[in-house]
Amino acid sequence: MSIRLKNVHADYEGKAIFTDFSLELPAHGALAVLGPSGSGKTTLLRLLAGLITPQKGAVEGLVGKTISMVFQENRLLPWCTSYENIALVQKKRLACPQTLAWLERMELAAWRDSYPNELSGGMQRRVALGRACAFGGDILLLDEPFTGIDEALRERLVPHIKSAAEIIVLVTHDSEEAELFKAEKLVLDAV
């Protein structure tokens, strides 16, 4: 069953963001959600992640699906190292090799024992990306995932991120990022 939002009404801090909004996600590949600030890009991700429920309408097709996400903020545990932040989202027996592999892919192997406050903003972002990718799942939701990451590194990271989930929904201000993912584009209008 495809994943879709059906006639959704959703508010954010009392302001109507979506009114009778419908959308069907592609069965495979990436969807890039573009649009100005306040157009509901993050709200859309939060609806798909099940972190908020619509006032009206429904989000269908998510039953039994595993969802992973890179939030707009890094949301790393400050008392855990890079390694621990990634390992904690995995099943215990898989933690070691997979965590190391994702640290390698995010080019963070040398910082595996560093705490978030010892890392630059871009490095912290890569730990958050590594964590979401290591968790894997059916759908990967990315909210401006490349904040603080330079263009060359971004290009090296994209193939690994694409391999982490079947469906990727990417929120971005930058249409070049959408190109990197070869994503279908959805442009939201300002509310």
Partner: peptide, 23 residues
């Protein structure tokens, strides 16, 4: 925000308590 992250990554009650709340 950390609690929301724990929920999304299926930490469960015990893990959320020991890894997020206790520290």
């Amino acid at each position: 925000q950390l609690l929301e992250m724990a929920k999304l990554f299926h930490f469960g009650k015990v893990k959320t308590f020991t890894i997020v709340y206790l520290p």
